[in-house]
Design a protein around this nucleic acid. Structure first.
Lengths: 212, 212
DNA sequence: ATTTCATTATATCGGTTCGATATAGCGTTG
DNA sequence: CAACGCTATATCGAACCGATATAATGAAAT
């Protein structure tokens, strides 16, 4: 799921891991404050499958420290340099690895965005919606309806609130149900808007029709 | 986190894995439909640390099939029995492993419930609230306030919604923020009730006072 | 009667995410 | 110039999920 979001960001411009996290955090705020422990493995995955390529940070103007053995005079200094080298063979001086999306990556992104899965989780669904502008109107509508169906079903199954629950359990269950209800309302608004823009004229005719 | 919930259920009565899942699903419904891939490892964990003990299913009244070599006359029948025995050396006939909470388990439960962590995640927090009746009034209040503080901070950090977001991203972010706001409102109600029951008389005096 | 099916029941596997931790370069500020 | 905070990458263990395998049981269908 993170993969999709990362590819979505890289579609706009090349970024490195730290920036990706910032973008997610700053732009999508509450929805996606993702850990580095997720970001970097995700980038490795994507690189391994060829969806992205890691390029060196070309912006290394001042203080060229790539000399083989800078005679610092300090032994510990030299050792530190070597240790750093050993640990970061492919990285540039600043240690920035800028990632660029490939053609395959663009394909993968489209697939991930359009695939039927990843709708059960609120987080994953939210991320999909956040990048829904890359979807065809039809696929967008389908996505929203699929999520709606899941929430409705979940609400129905939870159903009749158990009477032998104490105040706290009942309260939290009720509140969760209310949240889901609000989610559905939100989806209904989105779906309505979506339908209106899709066929603005025949809106009243095709209304409530043959959904599969 | 699951550990706490499981111990909470076992505090009421002995249960086996399948039942634990059902209880969570049926009672807490939407909030906690937990996978078996979480339940069974959790039970193993708890057993390993001695928080629970696995007992045999003693309820095997009718059709006593524990005879060493029931003369079924059918060879395949005998073989089936033996194969079942081989695969389930510690399990009873039905394969049920009923878990009972230990004294240490009760202690662990109290600790898990009272610990300051596991409040960032909506799920974990929900589960804690669901078992909040086992908490002291003070600890209960603290739990609710801690969660509230986190949500408020999260909302503040998300802050000024980015203007250069498209309709979809903006919509999902806004909706998420609304949900969090509703969560806070809910918490406020709970906190108010909690305070009222804690010191019913001085409610108006200590009102809006020295929260840490 | 027996096959078939749904339910009950336990268990493991691979993959994803998180939180914590380690490391280090860099810029600002005291 | 030392201390601090931000930028930046990376890895680790633990938790959880979804899928899958296995098997016993009971009821319904044939």
């Amino acid at each position: 799921m993170l993969d999709m979001a990362i590819l979505g960001l890289l579609e706009e411009k090349d970024l490195h891991g730290y920036e990706i996290r910032r973008q997610l955090r700053d732009n999508l705020g509450i929805l996606a404050n993702v850990s580095f422990g997720s970001i970097y493995p995700a980038l490795s995955r994507l690189e391994k499958t060829g969806a992205v390529v890691a390029t060196e940070d070309q912006a290394t103007p001042a203080t060229d420290a790539s000399a083989p053995a800078p005679p610092t005079g300090s032994l510990s200094g030299e050792l530190a340099v070597l240790r750093a080298r050993r640990h970061t063979p492919t990285r540039s001086r600043r240690g920035k690895k800028v990632y660029r999306i490939t053609e395959k990556g663009r394909l993968v992104f489209t697939e991930l965005l359009a695939e039927s899965g990843s709708v059960d989780d609120a987080r994953s669904f939210g991320l999909k919606v956040a990048f829904a502008r890359h979807l065809a109107p039809q696929a967008r509508l389908t996505l929203l309806e699929r999520r709606r169906a899941i929430l409705v079903q979940r609400l129905a199954e939870a159903g009749a609130h158990n009477p032998d629950l104490d105040v706290y359990a009942r309260s939290v269950v009720q509140h969760t149900a209310d949240s889901v209800t609000q989610d559905i309302t939100w989806l209904d608004r989105l779906i309505a808007t979506e339908r209106a823009t899709f066929h603005p004229a025949a809106a009243e005719l095709t209304y409530e029709g043959d959904i599969r």
